[in-house]
Amino acid sequence: MINIQAKIAEGKSAGYERWAKKYNRKEVARTVCLLRERGIDNYEELKALTEKFSGRFNELSDEMRKSEKRMVEIGALLTHINNYSRTRKVYEAYRKSGYSRKFFEEHREEIQIHKAAKQAFEQLPESKVPSRRSLNEEFHRCLSEKKKAYTEYRQVKKEMQEYLTAKQTVENILGIDWKKQEEQKKKNIEYRNR
């Protein structure tokens, strides 16, 4: 809901005031309809539902982030595997040349790519480099988990936003100012800890 008095103090016009009043009435009506449809009878129930959906939203966000992170790691590892196999012959020739400076200068880029791939393999938690096939399977599994989580994520996000809006509207109607209450609690705790 819009704080009309604050907006007028900022210099908004009378037309804005009429629009804001109309908007606030619609928001209250929307909230009442939502609460009736969902069978929510009291503020505590609304607060619990808001916390439930916010928690689930955060869980799904974390799951999706983990899947995305792992997919990026797999992509980088696949790139290193491809680079290693592509530059292996050049590196073997470099070793056979006795690590010749002249050979290194001629094939600097391939040798550095090969060394970077080897270094990436050494940083793996397991000593064996996974196969391309197993990495591709894991990538597709992570992708399907992410897609599955995303469908639920969209629905939960919508529900969470509806409940958060309804909760804010109810708090505004009831005159509950949670920020002031939380600040007062923090001040009380600080005072007790002195």
Rank of each mutant, 00 (worst) to 15 (best):
L135S: 03
A117C: 06
N193K: 14
R65C: 11
I4R: 10
S144L: 09
K180D: 11
E110W: 05
E106Y: 01
E27P: 13
L49P: 04
R86L: 10
E17L: 05
I2M: 05
K167Y: 11
E182D: 08
L124Y: 02
V129G: 08
N58C: 07
S131K: 02
A166I: 01
R70E: 15
E126N: 04
G55I: 01
N172C: 02
L143F: 01
V156W: 01
E106M: 01
L60N: 01
A93F: 10
S97H: 05
F57I: 04
R38V: 09
Q161A: 13
L35H: 12
Y23K: 07
Y153A: 07
E68C: 01
E183Q: 12
R56I: 03
G55A: 11
P125Q: 06
W178N: 13
A9V: 09
H140T: 09
Q161F: 07
A93T: 04
A29V: 07
S144E: 14
N58D: 10
K47A: 14
E45C: 02
I173H: 12
K118R: 14
K128H: 08
G98T: 10
N24T: 00
P130I: 01
H114N: 12
M64P: 12
K102S: 12
A76I: 03
A166K: 03
Q184A: 14
W178P: 08
E17H: 03
S144G: 00
S127Y: 07
N188V: 04
L35C: 08
I40R: 02
N24V: 00
E105T: 05
K47G: 06
R25F: 10
Q123L: 15
K146S: 09
D177S: 12
F57V: 01
Y16C: 07
R133S: 11
K7M: 15
Q184K: 15
A9Q: 13
K66W: 00
E182G: 00
L164F: 03
R95H: 02
K148A: 15
Y23M: 01
E59Y: 01
S144C: 03
R95C: 07
L143N: 06
E63W: 09
I113A: 06
Y191V: 13
Y16A: 09
H140F: 14
V32S: 07
E190Q: 04
E138S: 05
E10K: 15
Y43E: 04
E44G: 03
W19A: 13
E44N: 08
Q181F: 03
V156G: 01
V170T: 06
R65M: 14
Q123F: 10
C33P: 02
K146D: 09
V72T: 07
S85Q: 14
Q5N: 14
V156M: 01
Q181A: 11
E126I: 00
R192W: 11
G15E: 04
K89N: 09
L78F: 13
S127R: 15
E126V: 04
Q155S: 11
K47I: 05
A93R: 10
R133I: 10
K66V: 09
K158Y: 07
K89C: 02
A6Y: 15
E59K: 05
S100N: 06
E37V: 11
L46I: 07
I189S: 10
